[in-house]
Every structure is written in structure tokens, then in C-alpha cells.
Nucleic acid binder design. Sequence first.
DNA 1: GATGAATGAGCATTCATTCAT
DNA 2: AATGAATGAATGCTCATTCAT
Lengths: 212, 212, 212, 212
Amino acid sequence: MTNSDTAEALIPALTEQVDRRKILLQAAFDVIASSGFEGLRTRAVAERAGVNIATLHYYFPTKQSLVEGLAQFLSGIFATLHAPSRPKTGRVALDHLRQEFTDAQFYHERHPELGVVLQELALRANRDAAVRHAMNGLTASWRSWIETIVQTGIAEGTFRQDLNPRQTVPMLMAVLAGDSHVGIEELENIQRGVEEWLLAPEVKKELKGVKP
Amino acid sequence: MTNSDTAEALIPALTEQVDRRKILLQAAFDVIASSGFEGLRTRAVAERAGVNIATLHYYFPTKQSLVEGLAQFLSGIFATLHAPSRPKTGRVALDHLRQEFTDAQFYHERHPELGVVLQELALRANRDAAVRHAMNGLTASWRSWIETIVQTGIAEGTFRQDLNPRQTVPMLMAVLAGDSHVGIEELENIQRGVEEWLLAPEVKKELKGVKP
Amino acid sequence: MTNSDTAEALIPALTEQVDRRKILLQAAFDVIASSGFEGLRTRAVAERAGVNIATLHYYFPTKQSLVEGLAQFLSGIFATLHAPSRPKTGRVALDHLRQEFTDAQFYHERHPELGVVLQELALRANRDAAVRHAMNGLTASWRSWIETIVQTGIAEGTFRQDLNPRQTVPMLMAVLAGDSHVGIEELENIQRGVEEWLLAPEVKKELKGVKP
Amino acid sequence: MTNSDTAEALIPALTEQVDRRKILLQAAFDVIASSGFEGLRTRAVAERAGVNIATLHYYFPTKQSLVEGLAQFLSGIFATLHAPSRPKTGRVALDHLRQEFTDAQFYHERHPELGVVLQELALRANRDAAVRHAMNGLTASWRSWIETIVQTGIAEGTFRQDLNPRQTVPMLMAVLAGDSHVGIEELENIQRGVEEWLLAPEVKKELKGVKP
DNA sequence: GATGAATGAGCATTCATTCAT
DNA sequence: AATGAATGAATGCTCATTCAT
């Protein structure tokens, strides 16, 4: 009984400590989303997090360490945040591919700041090794996932047999991430074009009439 | 007499003024290329341009006006700077399409700062109406050029007849601009994939053996 | 029984408290020796002492109280730390005088930080009554000891009979403490000059051939 | 006429520029005199000088540069500021020696801050190469002047012929600078003791009845 | 046109101190 | 007794901008 009392007292304390860091990172995320790195001020982050400047520096001794924390924070978000899963077609690769487009749309519609902050970090990665490291990790795991989809698609006969993965993978990545230039409203058109291009003729026929 | 005097006096002055402006804009461009908007300092720009800060403020009363000038400066660069033209195949759309890829590669290899600054401005456009306006102009004219290519390609029988321009145009734009995520070294692969996808079957046969 | 319990509990606790205080004061001494009052940071002191800052503030509620503690700590050091005693000549005043020079050299060679911290405190005494009080005590007891030496020397016939103590005492103090301007390497020369000046002619003869 | 106008316009401007630096250095001097290096705040210096913080940093980019400027400023003061010259005795060395004591007293009575700031700088010289350099220059020129006095005194027969300059010079320096330990009120006593010690017996007789 | 000097507002960071545990 | 977390008030320094010349 006293045991559980102690436990109850300890856990919230621990939880809150973890939270403070996350709250600060989320605040930094928000500030960057609305003002860019250009407008990132430690004071604004602290204020948004509801803590004193000195408290921010207690958790992140320098602004740089905050930025590095943010890069990892963002990686964590992309690893865990996905659109609700869509109805399956039974074709694994197609389902995963469509999920990628759904995710892209989901990020854009529900969490438009994600793309902005991601691009800010990608740009900063050019001149900041620590950020570059974190972003490389994120890109690498995404690329390997896209590769899996393409290879699976070819193997299971969903995609055209003459597809060259070395061409297809970067095209898909560019198309999925290229929202900044084409506008999300065209993502659906792009998705149709991609499927037109990727799917094996017999799969196309098979899917005729089934809404995507 | 006084007319010609004035003219003679004004024209060099005007010319020099134009030059000073351009020198300053180029300096701003360089600073952003290496430090981002985050690191854009008027003093650094003035120093790089070899003038006093007060002089910079004579030409650009505010930092904002400098940024706006830069957006137009960049539009001008993309309008006039292209890779040396490539050997023609006689198929107009294909030639233009290939020129687009050549340009993309040329920018990346010979003027890597261009992409960085373009992305910085694209990001800033989110929160800056004037920059957004300039960037929209740039995007719009590029899009209309890509549309022309696609339509010409279909019309002249170079591209597949069942292509949907509404799908094809944004895909091409995303793919051409999506360098930040895939790396320039894959641009050639992407180009092959794109041609595989766009070209009409008979054109493919016709081009067999001709190096791209 | 409870008495002895309490006593046993208190005494070690008290001892340890005294120790912690001394460790903290020594740490403060070290920090001042290497960075001056200018660089005295409570965090640096705590870190050097191997305790938390809050612990430092438990023993010394304010930085000022730490400084005051240091002034007394230093007085204690000068009261107890001396060079190993030198061979006696039998002339009490001369022996004591020589011991003063030996001490000065000893401090300078073996504990050079002592002089630095002493001067830092002397300077701070100008604007800090509590430090002034402690330093005055230190100076007063040193002066009275020098007076004793001079008077004894005259009385016992070791020093010249026409010496005026009111002139001699401050000269000796200035000369013994004036290391900052002349460099310790000259202290031996100074000592010879002082003896030349102070000693009675017959004592000089008597000491001829005896190494100082 | 226009010439003189221009001159009148230019000279004050130039003067004022020079002054700004000096005003800032004097302000820094004042702040250190009353609060020590410990209490030296750029804001306080700027405020005392009646300028904006940014203006201080225009003239002294860093606090360190201000401190270095101060060290040179102080050297300049000691080189040019002296007590009004005293009546001569005709004995050059004695006149110069007495002038040294008069200067010491003058500094202490009329410019008591000088000694404080000098000691602050001397202490800081321990950990600051630039300050050390400046202070070494000051000490070296003072020492060479004292050497000149002692040698002249021996040569012209004013001082005892058996004086050893290697002993006498540092003793004099220690005694003249050792005010921090003995108090200025004893400086006169010290001076009498020093003359008693230095002067040749016949000179003493000769000076009997002449007030010092 | 051009510049040296000046400034208000702000910036990341630090510091002595406090407090709940 | 001891500590991790938190904070208000600085602290040295920077920045875009202005102005007299």
C-alpha cells in the first residue's frame, strides 16, 4: 500500500520531467512553423511553453541543442504519425503505396506545419552537421520503405515487371515530397498518374470500377 | 545642350545605380546561400558588396525591400540562365523535356546555391506576401512552359496519347524540382524513368540506339 | 542514553558540517585564485567542492556570506601556515625578522595563490565592510608582531639604537608585502638591504662570515 | 573665411571622436574605482559616459578591448600626471626622490581611485596577457626611473657610497607602492626613514634645519 | 550618392537564489 | 542535509535603422 503510494508519487514526477522537454520541443516546432528558423527566438519558445527562459536553458543549454532536439523530435513524429489506414485491396504493394499518398495528404491537410518544419530542417541540414545527421536518418528509413514497396509490388505482380527500382524509387520520393511546388490539391491527380504508370495492365483491368 | 549634358550625366549614374543594386542583390544571394535567411545580416551583405551599411539602406530602405528585390532577382536568373543547349532529336517536345533535365542538372552542378536560395525563398513565401507574389510568378511561368511541352508532345505524337496533362504536368514539376530529397546523382535515373513512362512506344523504338 | 545518542548523532554531523564548510571555502579560494573575484561563480565553487549549488546555499545562504567566510578562512591560514623555522642566531629579533622574510618567500614559492587571494580581498575590503573588518584584524595582528620585533631588536641591541619604530615598522610591512611590484626573485636582495639598514654596526661585524 | 569655417567644423568633430573614446575609458575607470573589475558592467560604463550601449561597442567591440584600452589609458595617466613640483635642494637625486614621495602622496590624496584601479589591473594582469603587457610597460619605465635616481644619488654623493642599487631599487619601489598595507598617513614617516637610511652622513648634516 | 557614428530594441545566455521533496 | 528543477534580473553583444555631414 505504501509501495503503491510511493509509486504514484514518483511516476507523475518522472512523467512531468519528460513532458517539459517535449513541451519545449513542441513549442519550438510551433514557432518554426509560423516564423521559420529565421524567426526562432528562445524567448518565444519559452513563452509558448509557459516556462521561464532560464528553464528552457536548463533543458537545452544552447539554442543549437534545442534545434538538434527538434530534429529528433520530428523524426519521432514521422515514425509514429500516420493517416488512418485505408480499405485494403488485397494487393500489399498497392495498399502501401496508396497509404503513402494518403499519409502525404493527411500531413498536408491535418498537419500542414509538418511539411514546413521538415523543409526548414532540410535546409538547415546543409549547414548543420547534427541536423543533417538526424535528417539523413529520417530520409534513409523512408527510402528503404519505398524500396520495399516497389520491390514487393514487382514481386507480387502488382506493378509492371519492367519497372526499374533505381528509377522508380526516387521518382516516387520526389513526387510524394514535392508538394511545395505543385500544391496539395494536385496530389490526387498525381496519384492517379503514378498508378497509371506503375500498375501492371492486368491489375488495372482488375481494379476497374473499384474506387481508389 | 543641357539636355545632352543631363542625359550624359544621368545615364552613367543610372547605370551605376543599377549595378550597385545588382551587386547588393548578388551579395544578399551569396549570404543566403551560405547562411540561410536565418543568417542574413544587412551588415554582411554590405560588407560583401564592398559598401557601407548606410549605402545599402540607400538602395534598399529596409531589409524587407532587399528580400523582395532578391525574389525578383532570382526570377530573372531562372529566366535567363540555362544549360548550353543539347543536340536536337527533331522531336520538339522531347528536346524541350530533355533540356529541362539538363537545366536541372546544370543548376545543381554549376550553381548549387540556386536551389538553396530558391528553397529559402519558397519557404519564406509562406509568411511573406511580397515574396509569395514573386515566387508565384516564377512558378506560374515554369508551369505554363511544362504544360506547353506536354501538350506539344502529345500533339506531335512524341508522347503517349493517353497521357492526362493534369496528372503529367505536376508529376514532372515535382520530379524536376524534387532534388532536395533524392540527390542529383539520381536525376539521370529519374529522367530515364520519366522517358520510359512518357514516350509513345513507336518513339521508343525509333530512339533505340540513339544515346539520350 | 538518549543524550549520548543525540551527542553521537550530533558530533559527527557537526564535524562533517564543519568539513563541508571548509571544503566549500577552499573551493572558493581556488576559484578566486585562478579567476579573481571577477570570475567567482557560486556554481563553479559548488562544482569544485563536489556538491550541488543548493547545498552551497545551505551552508552559505548568500554569495556575500561565502566571501565573508573566505576572509576569515584566509586569516586562519596566515595565522597557522608558516615556513619551517630557520636556524637561530641567538638574536631573537633578527631571528624573527628573518623568519618573516622566509615566510614571505615560502608563501610566494609554495603557495603563490595566497598572495593573489589576499590582494583580491584587500581590494574588495574597500567596498565591503565585512571583508574590511576581517582584513583589518589580519593586518593589525601582523603589524603588532612586526612592532614587537622592531622594539625587541632595539632593546636587545640587535638593531640600531637610533631607529624610529614609527618609520621602521611601516617600511618593513611595505617591503615584506610589496611583492606584487618587485618580483619575489628580488626578495633576497631586499632582505640584505634591510639588514644592512637595520642592524647595529657591532652586530654586523659579529655576523660577518655567518651565512644569513 | 570659408576655410576657417571648414576648419572650425572639422576640428571639433575630430576632437569629439577622440573624446568619445576617452570619455568611455574615464567612465570605465570610474566604475572600476568604485566597484572593481567584479562590478564592471558595460551598461554602467555606457550610462556613465552618457552614451548608448551600442555606442560603447562601436568604440570597443568587446569588454576585453575596453579593459585593454583602460590599461593603456592608465599608463598614460601615470606618465603625465604628477604632483606640482617641490622646492629644489640642488641635489638632483634627492629632489627626484622627494618628488616620488610627493607624487605618491598626491595620488593618494587627490586621486585615491588611481591606486585602486592600478591594483585591480595589476591583479588582472595575472590572468590577462594584454593587460599584463601594458602593466609591464608601466612598471618597467618606473623602475628605470628609480634606478636613475639611485645611481645619480650615489654618483653625485648625495646617497651613501656603499648602497647596493640591486637592493635599494626594489626596496624603494616596494615602499613607494606599498600603500595598500600601511596607509598613506604613514608615508611621511616612511619617507623620513628612507632618507635616514639613504643619505650620506655629510648630506644629512648639511640638510639639518632645512625642512624637507 | 555615400559614409561614420549613433541608437533602441532585442538576443542567447548566465547568475544567484529559491523551493518542493 | 541534500538536491533537481525553476526563475527574475541581468549581462555582453548584435541588429536594422537613422542621421548629420
